[in-house]
Design a protein around this nucleic acid. Structure first.
Lengths: 287, 287
DNA sequence: CGTTAGCTTGAGTCAATTCAACAGCTGTGG
DNA sequence: CCACAGCTGTTGAATTGACTCAAGCTAACG
């Protein structure tokens, strides 16, 4: 169904490639993480005055294509991605998937299930994954004892909300090119954050999934990537993307969206193109 | 700047019309609500074993056009809408507004500020409003004592997240007509939930704001409403909307989105139109 | 009573989609 | 081992939904 993990072995393919997980230890033949490791993963500054290894959280592994949770399934646990790549999707009345996010290391899954006590989305592994289980009841109970944990929860949920707001803003206001450009930039940022190269990486998802995520068709995504390639903003070879001009990608926009304050009609065409002030094709030592 | 409150006096105009607030009492010349009332507003079943009036939350009033909070402003309090209508917006680098939501009675504001400790959106009153202040620190402290309160917080944040996910799905997958149709239906539902007529109501926002919210131009919104009016799905008179065929609005969709599983190419055109199985214009006793 | 903001409607345009053909790669099975 | 089936990705051509531009109308306000 999904591509094999062959691509994992390719150059510059980050994550999920090594069975040596950064966080986690063996116990009873399984991997467990303590609170400190969980907080580190979430980028939450945790000033813990507690015995770290007192409470441990279990890991679970999922293979490519496996579902972590499905829509309507009773909610009882949150997940944190320790390694690997996933997608979360909504499924409409015709069975069409709408991709909501591409969770990776440090992201939390399952928050949408808290309210109705049932997951409202589906999470699918795009590569082999290692997730940390956070039983929700246990978590809230702990939150009452460890204030930092509670703050972590609020912080993560709020962060997720802000992320989705930005997504709504993007879908509502940006052109196809701008969406694809920002998608690439945000992916690059994520990779950088995880310690991988932000200049050369492999996409974990199909054009179809990217299109669904960005509210575009796969053809438009493909064409846009090709166009960026021709302009020299990126290099494309199947799922291997090289970022050549991150600045241009970041600032790429729609032609001034309608009733903008800019009175000059002449500035339009100019603003539509990438502000390639510097020579377009500037090779960057990748990997 | 914004329309006057004249429209409030019109027929079937809900909320903000009466100074008699359902929740709240006078104390020191101001309105306050207890925890029970707050929970009721949020539709959170609160089985409280506590002295209700022990902890009170202060109300604040905002006039039409006033800002509740602005982008970048330090975060310290959440708000619950007790009455009135608002919009929350993102503002891009050119000053263009992107509407994110239209909060009304029972909705919570400010959650996006928790993560970065600064509000990431701006909330503007579209009518005179009465909001309940929830100082965040106080709230989390209380949450540790009253478990229900903590659950309320998680529940509300999760609910908000699910709502935004649905929004993303809508923006990513639906046609202009379908978006407008669902917008009307969701408004009607909200009004019904608040005890107002779901068959006849006044929009609180301009076409421009609706367009921004739905990722469309104001012209498209206007045209679509006119079209629905002609088909007999609704009646339109400026901001007064009458819902005539809620079912048709609910099921109105885009022509099967591309690679859908449906093999039959013949079914396309049919599905594009509203499934008006029943005679199209079916008058409903309104108000 | 003129001004302004909001709404409607028309005409033309264009960005993104739909439809279609083809190429590359993988896994399968004869 | 090679042919074949399926998925993925690319590219072209034609179509169209939504946008832009523009004009005019209404209601509210100073």
């Amino acid at each position: 169904m999904l591509p094999t993990q062959m691509s994992e072995a390719r150059a510059a393919a980050p994550a999920a490639q090594s069975p040596a997980l950064e966080a986690g230890r063996q116990r009873q033949g399984r991997l467990w993480s303590n609170l400190k490791e969980v907080c580190d993963l979430l980028h939450i500054p945790a000033a813990f005055s507690m015995n770290a290894d007192e409470l441990l959280f279990q890991h679970v592994q999922f293979k490519t294509g496996q579902r972590v949770h499905t829509i309507g399934q009773p909610f009882d646990t949150l997940y944190i991605v320790n390694s690997g790549f996933l997608k979360t999707v909504l499924i409409d009345e015709f069975g069409n998937e709408q991709v909501l996010s591409f969770p990776m290391k440090g992201d939390m899954l399952g928050v949408d299930g808290i309210h109705s006590r049932h997951y409202s989305s589906e999470a699918v592994a795009l590569s082999d994954c290692d997730l940390i289980l956070l039983p929700f009841k246990k978590l809230t109970a702990l939150g009452r004892v460890h204030v930092e944990l509670e703050h972590m929860m609020y912080g993560v949920m709020s962060r997720e909300l802000v992320r989705e707001q930005a997504m709504i803003g993007m879908l509502g206001a940006l052109s196809a090119e701008a969406r694809v450009a920002r998608f690439l930039v945000s992916l690059a940022d994520r990779f950088a954050q995880m310690g991988y190269s932000s200049k050369l990486f492999n996409l974990r998802m199909t054009r179809h999934e990217i299109g669904s995520y960005l509210g575009l068709t796969l053809e438009t995504v493909s064409r846009t990537l090709s166009a960026f390639n021709e302009i020299g903003l990126i290099t494309v070879d199947q799922r291997t993307i090289g970022i050549k001009d991150a600045e241009a990608l970041k600032t790429l926009r729609r032609l001034p969206p309608s009733r903008s304050r800019s009175k000059s009609p002449a500035s339009r065409k100019a603003a539509a193109e990438a502000p390639a002030a510097a020579p377009p094709v500037q090779l960057v030592a990748a990997v």
